[in-house]
């Protein structure tokens, strides 16, 4: 991330110096401003879902979800930490339900738990699953199309579902294959 950030930042800055140097500071400020606005939006989403998730946690619901998904999380993520399993289970459930905003805090908690056992494999796997998007219902897009007077706003449902599955399955498989190769080379 550091390398990518440095490369894009420096190359873009040099470009900007040639095109319109006066836009340099305003761009940075407007970037920070969008971050501030974005964090307000994010806070609203997180307030709703983390409040709810706290109740789910205290009532034992999340532990139940974790138990249901335990065989999967044990086999795929190779973790025995119940707190990590619980957060992974909640993260995956939120993703599947299409409430992506709610999924992020769980993923971050799960990653912090996995950090304790130095389970870098599971951390990266969880990142790949989330970053390849496993949404069942693309609510934003459907709302956008309905707003633009689409005759059938929902007709992208099936292709979206297929594509989101393709990207997640490809990502997980590639990752598993690469880690196998690496482990094989290490032995």
């Amino acid at each position: 991330m550091n390398a990518i950030f440095a490369a894009i930042f420096i190359i873009s800055s040099v470009f900007l110096l040639f095109v319109s140097p006066d836009k340099f500071l305003p761009s940075l400020l407007s970037g920070a401003e969008s971050a501030a606005k974005m964090s307000l939006t994010l806070f609203c989403i997180y307030a709703v879902w983390m409040g709810l998730s706290r109740i789910a946690e205290k009532s034992g619901l999340s532990a139940g979800a974790a138990r249901a998904l335990k065989p999967l999380s044990k086999k795929l993520f190779k973790t025995d930490n119940p707190a990590a399993q619980e957060n992974i289970a909640m993260n995956l459930s939120c993703n599947l339900l299409g409430i992506g905003g709610a999924a992020t805090p769980f993923a971050v908690k799960a990653i912090a738990q996995l950090e304790k056992e130095k389970n870098e494999f599971a951390q990266k796997l969880l990142f790949i699953i989330n970053a390849t998007s496993i949404q069942i219902l693309p609510t934003t897009v459907i709302a956008l199309r309905a707003g633009a007077n689409s005759a059938a706003a929902y007709d992208i449902f099936l292709p979206s579902l297929i594509c989101t599955c393709i990207s997640t399955v490809t990502g997980v498989l590639l990752y598993l294959v690469f880690s196998k190769i690496k482990r094989g080379a290490g032995n």
């Binding site: 873009s12 964090s39 983390m50």
Partner: peptide
Amino acid sequence: GIQEAVKFTFSLLPCLAAIFMMCELFEVS
């Protein structure tokens, strides 16, 4: 739970700000 959300959002802000500045430069340049 909302208290956790407050802390969590604040912990994200530095990353968000840096990434958004990068994106803005990337686009404007």
